[in-house]
């Protein structure tokens, strides 16, 4: 499956899960900021991706869920170097270049872009 084909299917999943329009689901759109995803939506997205691509996604594989609760990884509202290393290891599909400039914990949602989801699926499909 090509990158564009995966994108088209991911787009369909996000339109169904989040009730947004096709044209809002651009590669750079962030799931929480631009598309309004809330915590339960991430589970919904995971379930729909599994069905759409016939893959199995373990809990925390696409969206790590316990890194930011760890005091070692977050200090004074910033993700620590150790935390960044952990996040990068857990999310090789995401682009951290912008977030690294200001690792404010409130901005961590910016990592979760549509493109990150596409890359994740691409890696899963091998």
């Amino acid at each position: 499956m090509t990158h564009d084909e995966i994108f088209a299917k991911v787009q369909e999943v996000l339109v169904d899960a989040l009730g947004v329009d096709d044209d809002e689901v651009t590669p750079t759109a962030t799931l929480t900021g631009d598309l309004g995803a809330e915590s339960i939506d991430f589970l919904d997205i995971v379930f729909r991706l599994e069905k759409a691509f016939d893959i199995k996604i373990s809990q925390g594989e696409l969206f790590p869920d316990n890194v930011l609760q760890n005091a070692e990884y977050v200090q004074d509202g910033k993700v620590t170097d150790k935390g960044l290393t952990e996040l990068k290891a857990r999310m090789p599909h995401a682009d951290f270049s912008e977030f690294e400039q200001d690792p404010d914990v409130n901005k961590v949602g910016e990592i979760f872009t549509v493109e990150a989801v596409v890359k994740f699926v691409e890696a899963k499909l091998g």
């Binding site: 339960i40 589970l43 919904d44 379930f47 599994e50 069905k51 809990q59």
Partner: peptide
């Protein structure tokens, strides 16, 4: 039941 795991179900 479409899907169930540790976190929830659809």
């Amino acid at each position: 039941l479409d899907r169930i795991d540790e976190a929830g179900a659809s």
